[in-house]
């Protein structure tokens, strides 16, 4: 359905006095259930941003403005430098750590797409007061996170226009699920039932860690 058609349908609905789009649509193959969505309703909920930039709202924000918002709304959990407080997620650092014993996954070290950062902050942050940042706030915070990861300079201004110029360093290091090739052939076939190994030794014991909560 075109936008124009939707708007005119909505207009009819208001005229009919329902306040929303009235009645069922003239269904073709279906059950005639539901009603056509109002353009304003779609605008209210259809706020996601896709990796190709679909859904990026108009607006812009600077690193410096982002720093102000970050210190007010983000630093108490994510740390002054994006290093994280307690078990909240780190946003910066960790470059080159992904093959280490203790990898640190951050926007700079792990996330493949900056759109995901923008979308996520917009839909769920600040923690406990979701969906309260303006579009300009989101551009500013995202710019500041780029800055925390040494990906832009402090005078950078992020906007809908230049957003997709910001690729993240780890984008190329993801690959599609390959278990069908790398694992399933190994993990199939009739398994051994008798005398499958010479002996058994205990190699690891949870009791030694003693980190299990009590069950009383």
């Amino acid at each position: 359905m075109t936008r124009l058609a939707r708007v005119s349908f909505a207009f009819l609905g208001v005229v009919a006095g329902t306040g929303f789009v009235a009645g069922a649509y003239a269904g073709s193959a279906g059950y005639g259930l539901g009603r056509l969505a109002h353009g304003e309703e779609i605008a209210a909920w259809n706020t996601d941003v896709r990796a190709d930039g679909q859904g990026l709202p108009a607006g812009s924000g600077s690193v410096l403005r982002g720093e102000e918002i970050y210190f007010e709304s983000c630093a108490s959990c994510h740390g002054d430098f994006g290093e994280a407080v307690g078990r909240f997620p780190a946003l910066a650092g960790g470059e080159g750590s992904l093959s280490d014993e203790d990898p640190v996954k951050t926007v700079g070290s792990y996330w493949p797409y900056l759109t995901g950062v923008f979308d996520y902050i917009g839909r769920t942050m600040p923690y406990g007061d979701a969906r309260s940042f303006s579009s300009d706030d989101l551009y500013a915070i995202t710019a500041y996170i780029l800055y925390l990861n040494d990906l832009v300079d402090e005078d950078y201004m992020l906007s809908a226009q230049n957003f997709l110029e910001n690729s993240l360093p780890n984008e190329g290091n993801f690959f599609l699920d390959d278990r069908a090739i790398t694992e399933l052939p190994l993990f199939s076939g009739e398994p051994c039932m008798r005398a499958c190994k010479e002996g058994v030794e205990i190699t690891s014991r949870a009791e030694l860690l003693d980190i299990t909560p009590g069950t009383n």
């Binding site: 996601d48 896709r50 990796a51 093959s99 996954k105 995901g116 950062v117 993801f174 690959f175």
Partner: peptide
């Protein structure tokens, strides 16, 4: 096409020993 949102990129991807990740 897929959206590549937070829960399918930063999370719920499987980091391999070589530092690459399955999605």
């Amino acid at each position: 096409r897929p959206w590549h949102h937070r829960e399918e990129t930063s999370r719920y991807t499987d980091l391999m020993a070589d530092g690459r990740a399955r999605r």
